[in-house]
Every structure is written in structure tokens, then in C-alpha cells.
Design a protein around this nucleic acid. Structure first.
Lengths: 259, 259
DNA sequence: TAGTGGTCTAGACCACAAC
DNA sequence: TTGTGGTCTAGACCACTAA
């Protein structure tokens, strides 16, 4: 078992807080690396001379912080190091579209991981209020809804839902499962809507149970949400893309002038 | 006490899961609104006929989801709806600095809430590795470290730590508690470092216990982290600002061209 | 002072994983 | 079969809040 300090009974902090701190320190110092198993609950109860519930409370702290995850019958493990992907603002550069690459795939190629898309579901439906507002249409107006899930090295990392007013999608591959080289944005440009700018709204929250399942997230793991609105050169919003990303897998990078 | 179904002993779900589900449903259905107190632990143990730890585990679930927060000696309360603030990219526009406003205060004025800054702590110290790398200096080189906490309407919402190489700060108010009109960036520009661009790296994670205390976050509430690097017109990184924001209080908005 | 949540003990039985 | 974590019981004492 790894080296862990004993409890300091003169410390005003509760024993479970001290135990959690000792384990956290061991992880941060690298004595416990990604994927390593923590000492078992019975080892910890003996080492610290406390009841099992006290040890479990310490571990609960670390789970809530997203540092560790437990596997029934196997043990408690340090969460694997995040495969951090930087999504630079350039990821939507037109040159990628001209070369036939969609943004997620272009980024994957650069960062050296294997990207996949699955669960593609395309349908026409009435627009929900939040995307309708951003598109400048009325809630309930018909839109093409494209849902898909992105995987990196086989792990699900992002859920995305795009909303495109039917008028902009008619007669294009946007209504197909496979949108062809360059993806949705290439098709919109061909259809007379050259893109000028994007607006992204970034926030974070805890996932819903459905999102937890789809992204295979343990408890205590937050998600990043990004709502991107694409505008054409006429200033018209042509697409809203609502994404939910596993927070551990992403760092979003933005570059902007000081003016 | 509000209406709650009894346990279903034929249900395969654990009692604490059923109790959590019943309380969650009461919140979502509006029988328990924001700020309302949940039934006390003793009321719930009697109602469901279970041990106190079982009830506490159910409440722990809801805390992890960010639905409720507990107050020692008072009770467990449904969390109030978030007050969302948008921080547009323009918040660092030079015009604000010229008018003598720092970014946070300029944003507050626009959005109509009362902003405060407290716990300002300024010191000189060796640079930790992450900011040093972004500043293009060696870890351990001396930097001015400015720590502060931002409050909106009296609630703490953000912790910020800035790192400025001593060479850029010498002889300026950057080493003072009060940096004067326009803040750090105005002083850097006066000192011969006109700002050209910013890079922000955005991510989300669960807070550390210290961050939880400083931001008065319940367990199960994530934070947004933003690391901003400021570059002058010579392409030199002149400041790194590391911020931790209460996720419920922020939506970050970015605007960028399609190129 | 009464009621609330916070922490802790010392057991118990169960489900799951690995040998 | 052994060891792991998951769930639960029935108590205990403490710290905080409000009347």
C-alpha cells in the first residue's frame, strides 16, 4: 500500500476530510497515477483506525470532485488522465471545408486521435423555443433537426443537435444522413449562404441522467455546453448547433483582438 | 409535510434511489419551489420507515445533482434559479479601459447588477509552471501574483489570479492593491505594452474544497475555468489570468469569423 | 432549549469481479 | 472462494440555528 500520513487528532478538520486530503495529495503528487487503484476500504479503515463509513465518506468527496471512480467488486480507481483536445477557433476555417473535412474530423486529425460519429438521426420537426429565438424564426416553425454523437478513440465525448430552417436545407444533402465532404457548412455555402461568423455561448452544468448514459459519465462529472450560431454574409442565422461535451475531454480555446 | 409516495418494496431500485426520485419529482413538479425547505431528515426517516443514513444518502444524491443545498442547523433547501450573466468578448474592449473601467465592472454595469471585489492579495512570488509556460518564462522566475474574488449582488461568483512578470510591473500600480482606473490592462498599456489580443482557454470541472468554500458552492456544483493570456503588439505575453467561476452564474459568449 | 444537519461507530447482508 | 464496493441499521455525540 502507498505511503499515507496518519490522522492528526489535534487537527480541527474532520477525519474524513483529512483522509480525503491525504488521498488527493497522493494523486496530485503522482504516487497514485491515472488508472491506479486506491487502497481498499478495509485497508484504509485499518490504516486510519476509523469506521468504514468514515472512509467511504472520504472517497465520496473524491468522487464528487471527479478525481476517482469506483467499480463495484473491483476497487476505486484514479480517473484516467483527460485526453485533452483543444478546439481552436480555426476549427471552422473555410479551408477545411474546401478540403472536404468537417470540423470535428479536421481537429481529430491534427490532434492525433481517432474520431467517429454515430447515432445520426435526421428529421424534420417544429423548432423548440431556444434555437428558434437564435435563428430569428418562430417557435414551432419547421426545421431540420440533426442529432449525432461524437466519439474519440471509441469513447463518447460529445452530443450534438443541429437546427437548420427547412428553407435553407431544401434540396441539399443536409436532409441526408451523410452530408458529404465538408459537412453541413459546406452545403449551406453551396446553397447560397456563405458563412461569415459564428457566435458560441459556453456554459457548464451537471448532466441529466440521459446525458450521463449517452456519454458514459460517472457521477460527479460535469458537462460543457456550447450553443453555436452560424451567420451568413447577409447577417442571417442559418444554423444553431447545441452541443453537450464531457468536460474532462475538452479545453476550448478562443482567440480575440483587444481592439 | 408535502405529499410523497411510500416506498415500493417490489421495486428493484434501492430505497435511497426511490426516496431521491420522489423528492426530485416533487421539485420538478413545483410542489417544492426554489428556496423551499425539504422535509427534515427525521420526518423522512419516519415517513419512509428507514434509517437516517438511508435518507441522508438520498439527499446526497440531490446535492450532487446541484438540485438542493443543506444549511447546518436550518435544513435542506431547493436551490434558487441561477442568475445568468453573459460575458461578451467585447468585455475587454480598449474603450472601457480608456473610460477607466475594468472588465468585470463594465460588464456589471451593462447587465445591471452590483459588482464588488474583495480579498485582494498582491505579492511577488516564483511563477508556477502553467502560467510560466504561457508567459514564455521559466518556472520559478519572479512574477507579481494578484489574487482577488469577485462578487455579484453580494454573492461570490469568481476567483481570479493574475500573473505578471516583474519586469512589466515594475514602477506601476500593478504592485498596489488598487491598480487605478482601467485596471491592470490600462497600466500595462501605459508601461509600453499596448495590448493586441487575448487567448482564452475554457474548461469545466468540479471545484476543490477550497474553491467550494470561497465561492460558497454546495457539493455537486461545477466550475468554469478560464485561463486568459494577454499579448501585446510585439506578440509578447504580458499577463496570464487564471479564473474559476461558479458555473451556474455564467454563460461565456464568443464571436469569431468564419474566415 | 428544541430541532436541524454533520460526523462517527460497529456491525450486517448483498452484488459483483477475479482467481 | 475471496475480496471488493453497495446498501442498510440503530444507535451516539456534536455544532449550528432559531425561538
Amino acid at each position: 500500500m502507498i505511503q499515507l500520513d496518519q490522522l492528526d487528532r489535534s487537527d480541527h478538520r474532520a477525519p474524513y476530510v483529512q483522509i480525503a486530503a491525504a488521498l488527493r495529495e497522493a494523486i496530485n503528487a503522482g504516487r497514485l497515477g491515472p488508472g491506479d487503484r486506491l487502497p481498499s476500504e478495509s485497508e484504509l479503515t485499518q490504516h486510519y483506525g476509523v469506521a468504514r463509513m468514515t472512509v467511504r465518506q472520504a472517497i465520496q468527496e473524491l468522487k464528487t470532485e471527479g478525481l476517482v471512480m469506483s467499480e463495484h467488486g473491483r476497487g476505486v480507481f484514479v480517473r484516467a488522465a483527460p485526453v485533452v483536445r483543444r478546439l481552436a477557433s480555426e476549427r471552422f476555417a473555410r479551408q477545411h471545408r474546401e478540403r472536404g473535412k468537417a470540423a470535428f474530423l479536421a481537429e481529430a486529425e491534427k490532434a492525433g486521435y481517432v474520431a467517429n460519429v454515430d447515432s445520426i438521426h435526421v428529421r424534420q420537426a417544429p423548432a423548440p423555443a431556444p434555437p428558434a429565438e437564435r435563428l430569428g424564426i418562430k417557435a414551432g416553425d419547421p426545421v431540420i433537426v440533426r442529432e449525432r454523437r461524437y466519439l474519440a478513440n471509441g469513447e463518447p465525448v460529445e452530443l450534438a443537435t443541429s437546427y437548420i430552417p427547412v428553407d435553407f436545407a431544401r434540396g441539399t444533402a443536409i436532409t441526408e444522413n451523410d452530408t458529404g465532404p465538408g459537412g453541413i457548412y459546406a452545403r449551406l455555402e453551396e446553397a447560397g449562404h456563405p458563412l461569415e461568423r459564428f457566435v458560441e455561448e459556453v456554459a457548464a452544468r451537471m448532466p441529466t441522467p440521459a446525458e450521463r448514459r449517452a456519454l458514459q459519465l460517472g457521477p460527479g462529472v460535469p458537462v460543457l455546453t456550447v450553443v453555436r450560431t452560424a451567420f451568413d454574409t447577409a447577417g442571417q442565422a442559418v444554423e444553431v448547433c447545441d452541443t453537450v461535451k464531457a468536460a474532462y475531454a475538452y479545453v476550448l480555446e478562443y482567440d480575440f483582438p483587444a481592439r
